[in-house]
Each structure stands twice: as C-alpha cells, then as structure tokens.
C-alpha cells in the first residue's frame, strides 16, 4: 500500500474576479514523480505558490504527510515554515542569489537547518565550526550530485541557463526536502541540458525525494513522471498515468482548443507540428 506525501483537496484561489484555482484536488504518492501540466495561465504556478505559503487560497486544504511524522496542514504557514516542514521549491523565473557563488547559494539552503546564531558565529564556537564544515561538505556533495562541482566558485548569474536551473535545484535539495516542487525546470534550456535534467530528476527520485514537476516539455514528462495531473483554467481536467493522459480527449482538446497555449520559448518545435495530438503522443526530439 502506497502512502501519500501530499494531499490537496478542493483548493480554490481567487484574485478579485479571476479564479486562478478552482477546487483543485490531487494526491501525490510518496517517492513518485507527479507532473502537473496545462496551458499557460492554467494555474500551475499559482498551485505551487499556494503549496509553499506564498499565496493564501480562499478555500481548501493541503495536507503534508512527512515520513515518520504526523500529518500537517500546510496552509497558513509562512514560506520558510513550509520549507522547514520538508517542502522545497524552485521558481519558474530562476531566483538565485545572483551575486553569490554557486557554493554559497547551496550553503544558504543547507544552513537554513543549522543552529548557529550571531553569538556563535562571532565567537566561532565549536558547534559553529562543526556546522560550517558540515555545510561545506554537503554543499560540494550536492554540487557534484547536480553536476556543477567544477562551477562551485563561479558567480550564480554568470552560469549558463541550464546550470542555473540545476543550481536552484541543488539549493532546494540543501534544505533536505521530502517533497521537491520544480516549476518548469526545463524552460529555456537546450536539448542537451534537458537530457541532463531528465537524469537529474530520476536521480533525485531515487534518493527517495518525491518530486512535483510542472513541465511543458511532454517528452520530459512522459519519461520521468509516474502520474500526471492536467490543469486547465484552474480546474483539474484529467489525472492518471502519462499513457492515459495522452489518450484523454479532454486533454487533447485543452491543448488544441487553447490556441496559443505555450509560449514559444518552452516548446519551440511544437508550433511546427500541426496537430498537438501528435506532439503529445510522439513528443518532438
């Protein structure tokens, strides 16, 4: 019997007259990669913002089931508290600490769990030194894990786009999450970087971290996700395995009927493929 790591039920988020999320429910099984797809403006990022304490939805509940812990309500917590619970995230528009180096970015994530305060830091107490060493080791381990060890001392803003995406993932992993939420990690990356990312998501999943993935790139979704939830106009229109989703007429309709559903940057070749149906079934290379 599999257990859920996250349960969302009847989540509704409104901005004035606009309903950005409309009774969204989903269940994320522990350890699996769950993809959330949908045309632009469907409410995917809004969902992440609700899960991570940035937005406060008007209705609904979000329950996090930490491994070996008690069920916890996520809503009503501040972003840093949500992170402490074990839910980490990345941003659709990369938000690194741009002027800091790659290793500093990751250390900041790791150190959010440490205890050293200003007095300890000023006196460099034994615990401070121990934590500092642990943070260094862990930061380099994570950079190696995401394939950025050689770039450790480079300034974040100077890294290529794909590396920035992976650095953001490493920073999130530094906070020791049980659930990692990735908001369009492949957006703006080149095909080689996409393949690296695919491997990385698998590797993360293998370490036991559950991954909630927003992604436009269907090839990536098909290859890494165990289950898919499709959002359109703030509503869940379909949920199931990638194979089921591909065949679902409602999904095809949403992608075809939505007209300009994706921005060109995320799926450039899709525009060339006339029926979106095929682009769903046989994703572009």
């Amino acid at each position: 019997m599999s257990a859920a790591v996250l349960e969302v039920s009847d989540l509704t988020l409104r901005f004035g007259g606009l309903t950005s999320l409309d009774k969204v429910s989903l269940r994320h099984e522990r350890g699996e990669v769950l993809a959330v797809i949908g045309p632009n403006g469907a409410g995917k990022t809004s969902l992440f913002n609700c899960l991570t304490g940035v937005y406060t939805p008007q209705e609904g509940t979000v329950t996090f089931h930490p491994d070996g812990g008690t069920d916890t309500a996520v809503l009503g917590r501040k972003p840093f508290q949500v992170n402490k619970l074990g839910i980490a995230r990345t941003f659709q528009n990369i938000r690194l600490f741009n002027a800091l180096t790659a290793v500093e970015n990751v250390k900041i994530g790791i150190e959010s769990h440490q205890k050293t305060g200003p007095i300890g830091a000023m006196l460099r107490l034994p615990r401070t030194r121990r934590e500092e060493r642990a943070s260094d080791d862990e930061a380099f381990r994570l950079l190696e894990f995401v394939g950025l060890k050689a770039r450790a001392n480079q300034v974040a803003a100077s890294l290529p786009y794909g590396d920035q995406r992976r650095l953001e993932i490493a920073r999130a992993l530094g906070t020791k999450p049980q659930l990692l939420c990735l908001d369009e990690p492949a957006a703006g990356t080149n095909p080689a970087e996409k393949r690296q990312l695919e491997t990385l998501i698998r590797d993360i999943s293998e370490t036991g971290v559950s991954v909630l993935l927003i992604e436009h790139d269907m090839k990536l979704v098909m290859s890494v996700a165990a289950n898919v939830v499709v959002l359109n106009f703030g509503q869940v229109i379909a949920a199931g395995t990638p194979q089921q989703i591909q065949r679902d007429p409602k999904v095809v309709e949403a992608y075809l009927g939505g007209g300009e559903s994706d921005d060109a940057a995320t799926t450039p070749p899709a525009k060339k493929v006339p029926p979106r149906k095929t682009s769903l079934k046989k994703p572009e290379d």
Binding site: R89, L96, F97, N98, E111, S135
Partner: peptide
Amino acid sequence: RLDDSRVGRAWAAIREDEVAAAATG
C-alpha cells in the same frame, strides 16, 4: 566572522532576493 558565517550568508540571501530566501527556509 559574522559576515563569513551562516548568519552573514542568510543576510546576503535576504538582501538579494527575499522571496527566494524565505523559500530556502
């Protein structure tokens, strides 16, 4: 010492991007 510590890095993070800092715990 403060600047070159967990505390100093947390300040740098907040200064650079408060939303990302909060999301990083």
